[in-house]
């Protein structure tokens, strides 16, 4: 997540124009911008050097280069499984959005509904979703259904909460402002409430999509014939640690990719409040 902060800061600098930021820039925007990358390279380099030096075998801890080579060699295999997991994650996340957003709206607009549903939601949230995985397999079989359901269940809560909080935290004076212009509730929602809540909502989406990846992979651990979680279990049983690592890297690559897709959509649809500060 640190890397997105860096990107956010870079965007802010771009929007800020030239004159105002000269002081900050003189401290080295180059170093600031690439600091995450530099640190990553240093850590990976250390790993690469320390493994042979310490005498650990490839079966215990492969070097980063070996993992990278393996990823390149096994690209078709990894891709075919990643494709399955990606589908489960996206489907589960989409369901969470489609169910979570209307629910959030109902909670926001109806006091009674909020009172009724909140305790239930919180109670459900305290159930560890992972513990439901075996049950879901029992009910829904070995296909993609239990994985999608798990991804949905695990990513649903942050979407509801962030949307409700985003809508509720609006300055009441802004509502008065547009009402004084004669706005209907419909207009108030689309001109003020929703745009003001978007940063919160996207924050919830980002958390949710990372969780959806976890949900899908755990579903695959329990019972699957395809998917990255399944591939990893296979590598495990074959003591193929390098492939195991290659799968882990692919899983996190999936999460990072989805995170950045949402981040890109957010940047297109919102203007950061303190972009120029």
């Amino acid at each position: 997540m640190a890397s997105t902060d860096v990107i956010g800061a870079a965007q802010a600098q771009k929007k800020q124009g030239k004159g105002m930021s000269s002081k900050k820039k003189s401290r080295g925007p180059w170093l600031e911008r690439y600091s995450a990358l530099i640190l990553a390279v240093v850590l990976l380099g250390a790993w690469q050097v320390l493994v042979p030096w310490s005498g650990l075998s490839e079966f215990v801890l492969p070097t980063p280069l070996a993992i990278a080579k393996r990823i390149v060699n096994e690209l078709p295999l990894l891709a075919s499984h990643a494709y399955v997991t990606l589908f489960e994650v996206v489907a589960g996340f989409a369901m969470a959005v489609l169910v979570g957003m209307p629910l959030a709206l109902a909670i926001f607009y109806s006091r009674a509904f909020e009172r009724a549903i909140y305790p239930i939601l919180v109670a459900l949230q305290t159930v560890p979703k992972v513990a439901l995985a075996p049950l879901l397999v029992l009910y829904l079989g070995y296909g993609w259904a239990p994985k999608i359901t798990l991804a949905f269940l695990i990513s649903f809560f942050p979407i509801v909460i962030s949307t409700v909080v985003g809508l509720q935290s609006l300055d009441k004076n802004l509502v008065n402002l547009v009402r004084s212009m004669g706005a209907s509730e419909w207009q108030t929602f689309f001109k003020v409430r929703l745009p003001a809540a978007l940063p919160n909502i996207f924050g919830g989406f980002k958390v949710a999509v990372s969780l959806a990846v976890i949900g899908a992979v755990i579903g695959e651990y329990v019972a699957a014939e395809r998917g990255l979680g399944y591939l990893q279990l296979q590598a495990n049983s074959l003591f193929d640690t390098t492939l195991n690592f290659a799968t882990v890297v692919t899983i996190s690559g999936l999460g990072v990719m989805l995170y950045f897709i949402i981040d890109t959509i957010e940047a297109r649809f919102t203007y950061k409040r303190d972009a120029a500060k």
Binding site: N173, L174, S180, K191, P195, A196, T270, Y271, R273
Partner: peptide, 16 residues
């Protein structure tokens, strides 16, 4: 419809 209001704080929408 004939009234316009200026409030104590500017209440500008920051995304516009």
């Amino acid at each position: 419809p004939k009234t316009g209001v200026v409030f104590q704080s500017d209440l500008l929408l920051y995304w516009r």
